[in-house]
Design a protein around this nucleic acid. Structure first.
Lengths: 118, 118
DNA sequence: CCTATATATCGACGACCATCGATCCATGTG
DNA sequence: CACATGGATCGATGGTCGTCGATATATAGG
């Protein structure tokens, strides 16, 4: 349905808490999209590698660590960017990816149910 | 690979932070399993309904709100229980489901990268 | 411009997933 | 015990996903 190439509002910018009272069907769909981006071991590893790196990492450094083809790594990176978890930066011929820390914090907030009063 | 009917250690009991340094392939797989359980709009709605309910809810009350067949709801509930996010309680003929608050808190911690010093 | 290198995209394929109707298995009731 | 009802499981089906090799696109250097 929703394509990841869409340039509009990115999923991870949203994500109403799981304990929110007025959660709509659209909210649920957007939330599911973000979690879908982390529902694969390779993508979890990618995020982990980028968080621990602490700085943007080149695709050419990422690919060998993952043991996947370049095409597949590119596929996963696109999904993570589409979900708003990663950011892409072009440096000459190389593409550098890094995690969007804000997005991770927002995701943490999705699971906090104690202070939800909405 | 891993079946959700396994009774051993449940995915959501685990889940190393995304910023952990020694994340293994197995860690990534377990983490992905948990997020997979939330990678569907219906399951997000189920969790939302149970969190806002604040008390165990009967499948018979859940099914009409979701607009899905009873078989499909049962399928989703099993996945969420298997991931450790939900708990099941039998009351006579009825099955009551509730969220595992501890699991949600652990999941929130997975996204916290600031205080990670591992 | 021609070549080399880094990524992205395409097309194909096998595996997995969400969904349903039908069926099975409990548990409670007359 | 027979029957009704709630819920789990089964089998089938259409759709999506992860993967790769091949190809396209872009940048840089001679």
């Amino acid at each position: 349905m929703r394509e990841l190439t869409v340039l509009g509002p990115v999923p991870a910018e949203c994500c109403v808490p799981l304990g929110a009272r007025g959660m709509s069907e659209a909210d649920a769909e957007l939330t599911a999209t973000v979690f879908k981006s982390l529902a694969d071991p390779s993508r979890v590893r990618i995020v982990n590698l980028l968080v621990t790196a602490g700085e943007p990492v080149c695709v050419c450094d990422l690919t060998p660590q993952l043991g996947l083809s370049q095409a597949t790594v590119s596929f996963h990176l696109k999904k993570l960017v589409g979900a708003g978890l990663l950011e892409r930066e072009q440096r000459g011929v190389w593409a550098y990816y890094s995690v969007n820390r804000e997005a991770l914090e927002r995701l943490a907030a999705v699971f906090r149910t104690k202070e939800v009063r909405g």
